[in-house]
Measured scan of single mutants.
Amino acid sequence: MIQEPALPPGWEMKYTSEGVRYFVDHNTRTTTFKDPRPGFESGTKQGSPGAYDR
């Protein structure tokens, strides 16, 4: 089984109701579709995929 590298501290991976993966940075309280791990580009969309909830 291939294991992906861990997200940076304070980051979480979530999915929209449509199943699109996005990332929550709890450090800055922002969201992005761009994977924060080096070498992982998950898309070019920018903006908030939804309300920030902790």
Rank of each mutant, 00 (worst) to 15 (best):
Ile2Gln: 11
Lys14Tyr: 07
Arg37Lys: 05
Ser48Cys: 12
Ala51Trp: 06
Gln3Asp: 15
Val20Glu: 15
Glu18His: 09
Leu7Gly: 02
Met13Arg: 09
Gly43Ile: 09
Ser48Asp: 14
Asp35Tyr: 05
Pro49Tyr: 10
Pro38Trp: 07
Asp35Ile: 10
Pro36Trp: 00
Arg54His: 15
Thr30Ala: 06
Glu18Ala: 09
Asp35Arg: 06
Glu4Ser: 09
Gly10Asn: 15
Ala6Phe: 13
Leu7Asn: 03
Ser48Met: 12
Pro36Leu: 00
Gly19Ser: 06
Met13Gln: 08
Arg54Met: 09
Phe23Asn: 00
Met1Ala: 08
Gly19Met: 07
Lys45Asn: 10
Gly10Cys: 01
Arg29Ala: 07
Pro49Lys: 11
Gly10Met: 08
Asn27Arg: 07
Met1Trp: 00
Asp25Glu: 03
Asp25Gly: 00
Ala6Asn: 15
Glu41Gln: 10
Ser42Lys: 10
Arg21Trp: 03
Glu12Trp: 00
Pro9His: 14
Pro8Val: 01
Lys34Ala: 08
Asp25Val: 00
Val20Ile: 08
Pro38His: 10
Asp53Lys: 14
Asp35Trp: 05
Trp11Asn: 01
Ser17Phe: 05
Asp53His: 15
Gln3Thr: 15
Val20Asp: 15
His26Gln: 04
Lys34Trp: 12
Leu7Cys: 10
Lys45Phe: 05
Pro8Phe: 04
Val24Arg: 03
Glu12Phe: 01
Thr32Lys: 01
Pro9Lys: 15
Ser17Val: 05
Lys45Asp: 12
Glu18Trp: 01
Phe23Thr: 00
Val24Ser: 03
Gly47Tyr: 05
Thr30Pro: 00
Ala6Trp: 09
Phe33Gly: 02
Pro9Cys: 05
Gly19Ala: 06
Gln3Met: 14
Gln46Val: 09
Lys45Tyr: 10
Glu4His: 09
Phe33Asp: 04
Glu18Met: 03
Gly43Ala: 11
Thr44Tyr: 08
Met13Trp: 06
Lys45Trp: 09
Lys45Glu: 11
Lys14Asp: 12
Gln46Ala: 11
Thr16Gly: 03
Ser48Val: 11
Ile2Arg: 08
Pro36Asp: 00
Gln3Ile: 15
Lys45Thr: 12
Gly50Ile: 11
Gly19Tyr: 04
Pro36Ser: 00
Asp25Asn: 07
Thr30Asp: 05
Pro5Tyr: 14
Arg21Gly: 07
Ser42Tyr: 09
Asn27Cys: 06
Pro38Gly: 12
Ala6Arg: 15
Gly39Pro: 13
Gly50Thr: 13
Tyr15Asn: 08
Ser17Cys: 13
Arg37Phe: 02
Pro38Glu: 13
Ser42Glu: 14
Asp35Phe: 03
Phe40Asn: 05
Asn27Val: 05
Asn27Ala: 05
Asn27Pro: 01
Gly10Arg: 07
Phe23Met: 01
Pro49Glu: 14
Val24Tyr: 05
Met1Lys: 15
Met13Ile: 13
Thr31Ser: 05
Pro8Ala: 05
Gly50Cys: 10
Gln3Tyr: 14
Pro9Trp: 08
Asp35His: 09
Phe33Ile: 02
Pro36Ala: 00
Gly19Asp: 04
His26Phe: 04
Phe23Ala: 00
Leu7Asp: 02
Thr32Ser: 08
Thr44Gln: 08
Tyr52Ala: 12
Pro38Asp: 13
Lys34Ile: 14
Gly50Asp: 12
Asn27Asp: 03
Pro38Phe: 09
Val20Pro: 00
Gly19Trp: 02
Glu12His: 02
Arg21Val: 08
Glu41Ile: 11
Pro9Arg: 11
Arg29Met: 08
Pro38Thr: 05
Ala6Pro: 07
Pro5Asp: 15
Asp35Lys: 02
Gly50Glu: 14
Thr28Asn: 05
Tyr52Asn: 05
Lys14Glu: 05
Tyr22Ala: 01
Gly10Tyr: 06
Thr31Trp: 02
Pro49Thr: 11
Lys45Val: 07
Glu41Lys: 12
Glu41Pro: 07
Tyr15Val: 11
Pro38Gln: 03
Ser48Ile: 11
Ile2Ala: 08
Met1Arg: 09
Asp35Glu: 06
Gly47Ala: 14
Met13Lys: 03
Asn27Glu: 05
Phe23Trp: 07
His26Asn: 05
Ile2Trp: 04
Asn27Gln: 10
Val20Thr: 12
His26Trp: 03
Pro36Thr: 00
Phe40Glu: 14
Thr44Glu: 12
Pro36Phe: 00
Tyr22Arg: 01
Arg54Ile: 02
Gly43Phe: 08
Arg54Gln: 15
Ser17Ala: 10
Ala51His: 04
Val20Gln: 12
Glu12Tyr: 03
Tyr15Ala: 11
Trp11Phe: 12
Ser17Met: 10
Pro9Ala: 13
Thr28Cys: 04
Met13Thr: 12
Phe23Tyr: 11
Arg29Tyr: 05
Ser48Trp: 07
Asn27Trp: 02
Lys34Leu: 07
Ser17Asn: 14
Glu41Cys: 01
Tyr22Thr: 02
Glu4Tyr: 13
Tyr22Phe: 05
Thr30Phe: 05
Arg37Val: 04
Glu4Met: 07
Met1Cys: 02
Val24Leu: 11
Asn27Thr: 05
Phe23Ile: 00
Gly50Phe: 12
Ser17Trp: 06
Ser17Gln: 08
Gly47Val: 13
Thr28Gln: 03
Arg29His: 12
Thr30Tyr: 04
Val24Phe: 04
Tyr15Ile: 10
Phe33Thr: 07
Glu41Asp: 14
Glu18Tyr: 05
Ser42Pro: 13
Phe33Gln: 03
Pro5Trp: 10
Arg29Ser: 05
Gly50Asn: 13
Glu4Gly: 09
Tyr52Val: 13
Tyr22Met: 03
Trp11His: 02
Asp53Arg: 05
Gly10Lys: 11
Pro5Ile: 06
Trp11Leu: 03
Gly39Lys: 15
Pro36Glu: 01
Tyr52Ser: 14
Pro36Asn: 00
Gln3Ala: 10
Phe40His: 11
Arg37Asp: 04
Pro8Thr: 02
Tyr15Trp: 10
Thr30Lys: 06
Glu18Ser: 06
Phe40Tyr: 06
Glu18Val: 06
Pro49Gln: 12
Ala6His: 15
Ile2Cys: 07
Gly47Lys: 14
Thr44Leu: 11
Ala51Gly: 13
Pro38Ser: 12
Pro9Thr: 13
Tyr22Trp: 02
Asp35Cys: 04
Asp35Ala: 07
Ser48Gly: 12
Val24Lys: 02
Lys34Cys: 13
Ser48Glu: 14
Lys14Trp: 12
Glu4Gln: 06
Tyr22Asn: 01
Phe33Arg: 04
Lys14Val: 10
His26Gly: 03
Gln3Trp: 08
Trp11Asp: 02
Ala51Cys: 13
Phe40Ile: 09
Ala51Leu: 11
Thr30Arg: 05
Glu18Leu: 06
Pro9Gln: 14
Thr32Gly: 01
Trp11Pro: 01
Lys34Phe: 15
Gly43Asp: 11
Tyr52His: 14
Pro38Ile: 15
Asp25Phe: 00
Thr30Leu: 07
Gly19Arg: 07
Glu41Ala: 09
Arg21Ile: 11
Asp53Phe: 05
Gly47Leu: 10
Pro5Gln: 15
Glu4Ala: 10
Phe40Leu: 10
Glu41Asn: 08
Asp25Ala: 01
Gly19Leu: 04
Arg54Pro: 13
Glu4Pro: 10
Met1Ile: 12
Trp11Thr: 02
Met13Glu: 15
Ile2Gly: 07
Glu12Gln: 15
Gly19Asn: 04
Gly50Gln: 07
Gln46Arg: 12
Gln46Glu: 11
Gln46Phe: 07
Thr44Trp: 07
Tyr22Val: 02
Asn27Met: 06
Arg54Leu: 09
Ala6Cys: 15
Arg29Leu: 06
Tyr52Cys: 13
Thr44Pro: 10
Arg54Cys: 03
Thr44Arg: 08
Pro9Met: 15
Trp11Arg: 01
Gly10Val: 01
Trp11Val: 06
Thr32Pro: 00
Pro5Glu: 15
Gly39Arg: 14
His26Ala: 03
Arg54Asp: 15
Phe40Ala: 14
